[in-house]
Amino acid sequence: MILMLLCLLAPSGAVAQVTPAPTKIIVLGDSLSAGYRLPREGAFTSQLEVALKAKGYDVSVPNTGVSGETTSGGLSRLDWILADKPGLMIVELGANDGLRGIDPARTRENLDTILTKLKEKNVPVVLAGMLAPRNLGSEYGKVFDAIYPELAKKHGVPLYPFFLDGVAMDPKLNLEDGMHPTAEGVAVIVSRILPTVTAALDKIKAGGK
């Protein structure tokens, strides 16, 4: 009876319109993406969402960065993050591994496991690279820096080579600690990583991973 009434009330030939939900972009990251000491609107996630919407992309980019996060920490909370059903994941981890002098083999293993799990769940990924602090020596830097391009190639995911490109070591774009970007520094990061992110979103829209 209810179904009959609905049919009578519905206009002839009417088709229910369902508005698709925005693509959720999750950043598995640390304080660099969380917006350490910045207002909410100054954080990487907020600025990235605004920049993408300005280009016509229907997205939401919640702030899921955790200050002090290492690749081990990111791996440990990955299942919790995946429960949020990301349409695209940006993996931005490794800076704290380098600052703590963690064995690059451990960092590689953690990132490798993260990317493997994301592939198994069919979650598209952008891998944001990091460079080792130069005070740890050339050998450490050589091994650490190679992690990101090698894993990107192994897993077939797009790589943004250095998350802090254009910002690192520039006092005008960093806070007093010399490590965390100001809101202006974040704007530079967003402008530089944006083509990589939009290319990933376009590929998803076209039906690729």
Rank of each mutant, 00 (worst) to 15 (best):
M4K: 14
L6F: 15
T19Q: 12
T19C: 07
T19H: 11
P20I: 07
A21N: 13
T23A: 14
K24V: 07
S33N: 01
S33L: 06
Y36Q: 08
R37E: 01
R37C: 03
E41M: 01
Q47R: 08
L48V: 03
A51H: 01
G56H: 04
G56E: 06
D58Q: 11
V59D: 08
V61D: 07
V61G: 02
T64C: 09
S67C: 08
G68N: 09
S72W: 08
R77P: 05
W80N: 12
I81E: 15
K85R: 15
L88P: 02
L88R: 02
E92A: 09
R100I: 07
D103P: 05
A105T: 05
A105P: 10
E109G: 04
N110F: 01
T113N: 15
I114V: 06
E120T: 15
K121V: 07
N122V: 04
V123D: 10
V126E: 12
V126A: 10
G137L: 04
S138F: 07
Y140D: 00
F144I: 05
L151W: 07
A152E: 13
V167F: 07
V167M: 15
K172W: 11
E176K: 13
G185Q: 06
A187N: 04
V190R: 11
S191G: 08
D202Q: 09
A206Y: 05
